[in-house]
Simulated assay, not measured.
Amino acid sequence: MSDQPPPQPLTEAELSARLRGLAAQGAAPATGAQARDRAQRRRRGQRVVLSSTALAAAALTALASGALGSVTNASAPPAASVSHTPTPVPSPAPVQRVTIDLEAYTLTMEGRRFRISGLQEDCPIGEKAVTVTAKHPSITLRPDRFTKYVPRLQWAVTFTDRRHHERLLMWALDPSAGLNSIGHNAGPGAVALSPRDGKWVYDAIKTGARVEIKGRQAASADPDSVCYERQPVTGDQ
Rank of each mutant, 00 (worst) to 15 (best):
P6H: 06
L63K: 03
Y105H: 14
R112T: 05
T108A: 14
P29L: 14
V82C: 06
V95W: 03
A62H: 04
A204D: 08
G187I: 08
R210Q: 09
L55Y: 10
S52W: 03
M170K: 03
S220E: 13
V150L: 14
W171E: 03
V82L: 15
S138W: 12
S16M: 08
W155Q: 15
R115C: 00
A156L: 02
A221Y: 00
A221K: 01
R43P: 02
A156Y: 02
W155F: 15
V130W: 10
L68V: 09
A23E: 14
E121H: 04
S194I: 15
A172D: 06
R18I: 10
A30Y: 11
R43A: 01
A80P: 12
C123D: 01
Q120H: 10
L68T: 10
S51D: 04
V233K: 02
T31V: 10
Q4E: 10
N185V: 07
E212W: 09
Q4G: 08
K199A: 12
K199I: 06
S225D: 10
F146M: 06
D144A: 12
S117A: 15
Q40G: 07
D101V: 04
S220Y: 12
R42Q: 12
D144R: 09
T160C: 04
P188V: 15
S52R: 11
L22C: 04
Q217S: 01
A57D: 05
S75T: 06
R196G: 10
P78C: 05
H84M: 11
P29A: 10
L55A: 15
R230E: 06
S194F: 09
L153C: 06
E103F: 00
I139Y: 05
D224H: 06
G118P: 02
P9C: 13
R230V: 01
L193K: 02
L22A: 06
T72R: 08
L22W: 11
A221W: 00
A104L: 10
S138K: 15
R142F: 07
S70K: 07
P232V: 01
P88W: 04
D222V: 06
L19H: 01
P29K: 05
